[in-house]
Design a protein around this nucleic acid. Structure first.
Lengths: 193, 193
DNA sequence: GAGATTTTGGACCCGCAAGTCCACTTCGGC
DNA sequence: GCCGAAGTGGACTTGCGGGTCCAAAATCTC
């Protein structure tokens, strides 16, 4: 199945339309017909571009959303070489999730395609890349003498990623951003010594 | 609707059977017939004890699981008055979630009844109680001069709860317990100054 | 032990949403 | 402009699973 430019555009439109739909209040209740409606497509198109159906489409959407997660943290995440840039990054993360509020599209997706092999891979990859970026930042700071050498950069990066997940989890259930903020504060405080 | 002893036993059997089922690999795919099978009950019983159906039953299961979360941390969580007891608590938390692995019954449930008003309340209550217990522990330590007074006990307790959520979230997706452990290490380390 | 009430069995209904199918249209290359 | 391939529309099928219903059995109350 080779896709023409038009076909590719349609496929992308479906993905983005589905993504928009999955950011609604009830992501679990989203149906293919809903997506069909909002994207102005037909059933045959959905199965034309995603032959194995809903599952495949939702996985694509998950990839799409996962990419956005890191993209939304740029350019800060890519250049964590001063305490100011760390601060800017921290603020960007908090702002992003505060804006997102209780609707976490990625969480909603993972809940639905949770049992599909590919799903675990999507989030695992996201977490790994995230951790890698942070680890690089920490090492940079260590190289400049801003973080003491005794800190295990990889391990600490993992802790920060996990901390953000937890802050977001709490935000999702309680609507409060405070835990996310205080957690980041403590963790970055730990880096600063 | 008054329940006799027998009725209550049946109701409880249904809840526990459903809970067991929801700890499977595919919690989202659990059906009433599955539960009917494993609990040896009939359709009419399910609706007899949970008149508004699946949603109500699953909410009960969520409450059931939420209670277990804190219960599994006892007696440590209730007496956080020495660094040894904090350490024992930390170990208990890690052990519990390590044993549980990727199957987090509560997360699975919240994902399914996510749009139900009562569901948010269940997890919010759990988080609040959890935080309260930790906050008391921190204050106790402050009273004994083991934690410096400048620490905001409530805020710190919230951060710890969130940290655990994140560690568990990572554990669920990657299967690794390391981030949970390092996060708790850093957070308790922060308390110790 | 009689009558009310609760508990239980399981057949049945029904709507929804995923997935299929085929005819039609549009596009792209030569 | 022709032909094959890609794109599109939408009716239709199908199975699954939540929910209903009624009648029978067990249980409680007096």
């Amino acid at each position: 199945m080779t896709l023409t430019a038009k076909g590719l555009a349609t496929k992308q439109r479906i993905i983005e339309g589905a993504a928009a739909h999955l950011r609604s209040e009830d992501p679990a209740g989203v149906t293919l017909d809903d997506i069909r409606d909002t994207t102005g497509t037909s059933k045959s198109q959905l199965f034309h571009y995603f032959p194995s159906g809903k599952e495949e489409l939702f996985l694509e959407v998950a990839r799409f959303e996962a990419d956005r997660v890191l993209a939304d943290q740029q350019p800060h995440l890519g250049s964590l070489d001063t305490w100011e840039s760390w601060e800017a990054w921290r603020a960007a993360v908090v702002a992003r999730y505060r804006a997102q509020g209780a609707q976490c599209p990625l969480a909603a997706l993972m809940a639905q395609v949770g049992s599909v092999p590919g799903a675990a891979e999507v989030s695992t990859t996201l977490l790994r890349n995230w951790q890698t970026e942070l680890e690089r930042g920490i090492r940079t700071m260590q190289g400049q003498g801003d973080v003491r050498p005794g800190v295990d950069a990889r391990r600490m990066a993992g802790a920060i990623v996990a901390g953000i997940q937890g802050g977001v989890a709490v935000l999702r259930t309680t609507g409060r951003t405070e835990p996310l903020e205080s957690l980041l504060e403590v963790l970055i405080g730990y880096l600063r010594g």
